[in-house]
């Protein structure tokens, strides 16, 4: 047991906490200083977690099989970049992105298609809501059986997982335009198509982006878990499940770090696109001011 290391980590934690407490009570005259402080608080918290983690692992001599220290994970990550890149390509670029585009696109198209039939909407909407609550991930073994071990089966899982949130959100988004606005379009003698493109679709964007954001997380989860059921010898889910079996826990954590960064970046890109497209929405406008 290495008390000084652990004590140092705890000291750092207390100091960072105190500093954060002090920081959030400050009032900055300058705008940039205020936003820098807002940015620094969570960053410092994240660093504190890492330091505390490192301190606990080293201080108590926890075997790396149970919980590797962050420095060790980082080292492993840097050393095995080619493997991680290959896994990333297989899982993220092939399976996740294809499945995400197909699933979201399909959900959107079906929502537009059933838009003219209230009967189908009434039938599909409760069903879609119901399916959204189901453990859809369970279809993974079936898809692996149908589409083989390679990335196509993961695409299928991702498509099924992302389809229903997109469908439900698009349908409710298309209903979001108010009667007043729709009546106005009618007085303009706008066709269904014109009303759709000029009024209802723009009004639906916040809902659609909500689904896109939900789906960005779901897609990655779906692809990784589907790989637990069978995969060629590359892929993030494959690496995680085999390296766990070989007790190379640091490699698993490195893979998780990659997945975390990829997932957050994916979400961030979708969120940025949302800000660009729905610039008129109150939640975005208030965020800028």
């Amino acid at each position: 047991m290495n008390i000084p290391v652990f004590a140092g980590a705890v000291l750092f934690w207390l100091a960072a906490w105190a500093f954060n407490e002090w920081l959030v009570r400050q009032h900055f005259a300058h705008r940039t200083a205020a936003s820098a402080a807002r940015f620094a608080v969570p960053l410092l918290f994240g660093i504190t977690i890492l330091v505390l983690w490192e301190g606990i692992v080293r201080g108590f001599g926890i075997p790396s099989v149970l919980l590797p220290a962050p420095s060790m994970i980082w080292q492993r990550l840097v050393n095995s970049l080619p493997t991680l890149a290959a896994d990333f390509r297989q899982t993220f670029l092939k399976a996740v992105l294809t499945g995400y585009a197909l699933g979201c696109g399909l959900g959107f198209v079906v929502a537009i298609l059933i838009d003219r039939s209230p009967f189908l909407q009434k039938g599909l909407l409760p069903l879609g809501n119901f399916v959204s609550a189901l453990p859809v991930i369970g279809v993974a073994p079936i898809m692996v059986m149908w589409f083989g071990f390679d990335w196509q089966s993961k695409v299928a899982v991702v498509v099924i997982m992302t389809f229903f949130p997109m469908l439900v959100n698009t349908v409710s988004g298309l209903a979001a335009a108010s009667h007043m606005e729709r009546d106005l379009m009618r007085t303009y003698a706008a066709t269904w198509w014109q009303t759709l493109v000029k009024l209802r679709l723009p009004a639906a964007w916040p809902f659609i982006f909500n689904a896109l954001k939900i789906n960005s997380t779901l897609a990655l989860i779906g692809a990784i878990v589907a790989e637990f059921f069978g995969t060629p010898i590359v892929g993030m889910g494959f690496r995680i499940s085999t390296e766990v079996g070989r007790m190379n826990v640091d490699m698993v954590w490195a893979e998780i770090a990659v997945a975390a960064v990829a997932g957050s970046a994916f979400y961030g890109v979708v969120a940025l696109a949302e800000r660009a497209v729905t610039f008129w929405h109150p939640s975005v406008r208030s965020g800028r001011a």
Partner: peptide, 28 residues
């Protein structure tokens, strides 16, 4: 302080495919 430091991480953690850790937690 908790709000400012925790909340961004709570939101960020939702974007992480946490299920990927599941097998490791079990085995460990």
């Amino acid at each position: 302080a908790m709000d400012r430091s925790l909340m961004p991480w709570v939101i960020a953690s939702q974007t992480i495919p946490i299920l990927a850790i599941a097998p490791m937690i079990i085995v460990v």
